[in-house]
Simulated assay, not measured.
Amino acid sequence: MPRLALCRGLPILVLALMATVASPSIFPSEAIAQSLERGPSGLPLPRFVSLKSGRVNMRVGPGTDYAVEWLYLKPGLPMEIIQEYDNWRRVRDADGAEGWINQALLSGRRTGAAAPWFKGKQATIPLRAQAEEDARHVAEVEPGAIGEVRVCNGEWCRMSFSGHEGWMKQTLVWGVYPGETIED
């Protein structure tokens, strides 16, 4: 995931991120997905969105006076909104990094990362022709690849990765809650 660190304590930050990635809080429970908590915007918290732009600053606090901690360079990256303050959203990325992004740089378009927890390992994630374990493979997707979420039925998501459309186990998608349904 293209992201540039803009701080000197990079080794400490990398260790902190590694500890956070191993944390179960990155994989929200079904109870969280079904939560009725609403933010000041009236929208549910937490919820998934994506980045609108190819250059998005994540700040340490909710405002332009706060330091930039990360610079994201890929539009469409999924982000989880976990808090709202005025027109700022506290977000978490697939690696567990948290910070603040202005709402104008976020989109309601749903995207997902294919099993980012397998990045750096010899693994591929099958994209299947149908929402069945034994369905033929349409494509093999690299861990961390970003795709557009079309539909989710609570167990499977129909997704599109670089023109290849098919079904992926919902538990292998970061950007959709376990058990969440998304209609076309």
Rank of each mutant, 00 (worst) to 15 (best):
A114P: 05
P11W: 03
A145S: 08
E183V: 14
I82P: 00
A31R: 11
T124M: 14
L10H: 08
G175Q: 00
P28A: 06
P116D: 00
G99D: 08
C157P: 01
G112V: 08
R92Y: 05
Y72N: 09
T171Q: 14
A16K: 13
T124E: 11
N57I: 11
E183S: 15
G39F: 00
N57Y: 12
T171S: 15
W88E: 01
P78K: 03
Y177R: 01
R47N: 04
R89H: 01
P126Y: 01
F118Y: 06
L45H: 04
A135T: 06
R38E: 04
P24T: 05
D86A: 09
E142Y: 10
D184V: 15
Q34M: 13
V141D: 03
G166K: 01
K169Q: 03
L127M: 12
P28M: 05
L6C: 07
G179R: 02
I81M: 05
A145D: 04
V21A: 11
R38I: 01
G163S: 07
A123D: 12
E84P: 10
G112Y: 02
A114R: 03
F118T: 04
K74P: 05
S107T: 12
S23N: 12
T64I: 14
M18Q: 12
P2Q: 14
I146M: 02
V91M: 01
K74Q: 11
D65H: 15
G39N: 01
W100Q: 02
S29P: 09
D86T: 09
M79G: 03
R110P: 03
I101L: 05
E133G: 06
I32P: 07
T64W: 13
S53W: 09
M1G: 08
I81L: 02
V91T: 03
E133L: 13
M79N: 00
E37K: 10
R109T: 15
G175D: 01
G76A: 10
R128N: 01
S50D: 03
E80T: 00
S41L: 05
Q103S: 15
S162A: 13
Q122P: 13
P46E: 07
A22V: 07
A5K: 13
D95F: 03
R3I: 09
V14M: 12
G9E: 15
R92V: 05
P40E: 07
A94F: 08
E140A: 06
A129T: 02
P143D: 00
G9F: 13
L15S: 12
P44F: 00
M168C: 08
L10K: 08
Y72V: 04
Q130K: 12
S162Y: 04
Q83T: 04
V56F: 08
L105V: 01
G120E: 06
T20Q: 09
W70N: 09
L73C: 13
F118W: 11
I101E: 10
G9C: 13
L106I: 10
G63P: 08
P40N: 06
A19L: 11
A16S: 14
P46G: 04
D65Y: 15
W156S: 10
E80D: 02
A123M: 15
V149L: 12
A94L: 06
T111G: 04
